[in-house]
Write a protein that binds this DNA or RNA. Structure first.
Lengths: 203, 203
DNA sequence: TGTCGTGATGTCACTCGATGACATCACCGT
DNA sequence: ACGGTGATGTCATCGAGTGACATCACGACA
């Protein structure tokens, strides 16, 4: 299917990629596997591109930088999270609304623990990747806070609830990927949120 | 004081810097002012170095990268924060312990609001700088959580309390730098923490 | 007072991430 | 068969960051 073609005195090698669809997905897979094999810093964008059958230049057409290839699915997450927030009945307390959002997020992320572990391994091994993850969560938090405000929640309460949800998610997610049993992420998140309520009550 | 010196057929310009002490501080000041004037991306490390009277290579001997020049004081902060944590009496609840830490941090950061505003302006204007700020806060949080565990606080409670303290700090700090009156950062932090307690109680 | 060691800095060369400008190619409709 | 279009490749360039080595001021010491 992909052979070689001569044109003039130049021979083009049609090594899958230039016209094969799905370059973005191939790049994502190539990146994750290479980051896992060699580590993030030891992997060059050219390596990822080569494994995906494209050029480094093409990599940067799909992803703004070398880190983003692991994180661009956060836009989906944010979209669904906001939708979940819109779904809660008016008058729900800020923390309950946020609980509903966390439940939705848990369903999205909690499906494939093996994948989550691979990603977590890679991300935790590198400071730049941890930074990127944090800012993704934070911008999600900011979006949630905005939406909460639109729903009539007070300014500070909205910010606090949103930030708190991130805190809970981080703690719960960490427990989930570390856990040896196969407890649901959803359950762990619920537990963690309850725990926070207890803590804040001073008990 | 710093003139020129001829040695052999080479003339060295002793433009303050090569031997003048305090290169680190000069670099910090130069960076902040340039980031403020032109923006972070439009400022090159060579520019900062030049204003500080050194070479770009020297910049990287003081700071690991272009961002770190704004954040290396976090090591002080972490040190003092942990010391504050050690100062709380045994048996204090996780959240109360964290409250004490926040108070200490507030005293350190809350002294110069003008400086804080400048920094905040620069940091908020650039995604890479926001990332760096987040990871600094997060590693502070991790250090606090560790210390809380050493003090006998349960695993999850320790993580949650530490993460929560970051959430409270972020919300409070944002209010403080934005505020038009001259309310103390300490007070705002106390208020915000109280607000979180109320929120979590479901009221 | 001259010499030497040391720490801080400068110089140079290089790699790699990232971007703009332009060329090339497959594919699709006409 | 032809021309337009979108995706990709190619090339040149900038700037961050790093290693190796040279240079210099200064303080110790004879």
């Amino acid at each position: 299917m992909w052979g070689t073609v001569s044109r003039g005195d130049i021979t083009y090698t049609l090594d899958m990629g230039r016209w094969k669809p799905g370059a973005g997905d191939r790049l994502r897979e190539a990146a994750l596997s290479l980051y896992l094999e060699r580590g993030f810093e030891q992997t060059m964008v050219a390596d990822i591109a080569e494994r995906a059958g494209v050029t480094a230049r093409t990599f940067f057409r799909y992803f703004t930088d070398k880190r983003e290839v692991l994180f661009d699915d956060y836009s989906d997450l944010e979209e669904k999270a906001l939708a979940a927030l819109d779904g809660v009945p008016a008058g729900t307390s800020a923390l309950d609304a946020v609980a509903a959002v966390l439940d939705t997020v848990a369903r999205m992320v909690g499906g494939d623990r093996e994948l989550a572990r691979k990603r977590q391994t890679v991300v935790m091994a590198n400071a730049d990747l941890r930074e990127r993850e944090l800012i993704k969560l934070t911008s999600l938090s900011a979006a949630l806070a905005d939406r909460l405000r639109q729903g009539g929640i007070g300014d500070i309460d909205a910010s606090l609830a949103a930030e708190t949800s991130i805190a809970v998610f981080r703690v719960a997610f960490s427990r989930w990927v570390t856990a040896t049993d196969d407890q649901d992420l959803q359950d762990i998140i619920r537990e963690t949120l309850d725990r926070l309520r207890t803590l804040s009550a001073g008990r």
